[in-house]
Amino acid sequence: MLNLAPNIPDPDGFYAELLGVHEGLAPEESHALNARLILILANHIGDRATLSAALEAARTSGQPRSGDAP
């Protein structure tokens, strides 16, 4: 079951750390780091249904909402 409710105890600290590991990296190095991070997190989750739900949540939340002005 994918948890989309707040779950990180120190959200600002985590966000700063996430940006921190990208500091000084060229865009392609950042992309590579993100890809490794996704794979590490995906393996930690493991559960296939949760992973599918996460992929779907990521896919749809990047799209314009229906009813939004074009």
Binding site: A32, R36, L39, I40, N43
Partner: peptide, 20 residues
């Protein structure tokens, strides 16, 4: 290619990536 190389990079240190 990005994900393929990420798998290969991770596989050196982490067993989970080897199955990919």
């Amino acid at each position: 290619r990005l994900f393929r190389n990420a798998v290969l990079d991770l596989a050196r240190d982490h067993p989970f990536a080897r199955q990919l």
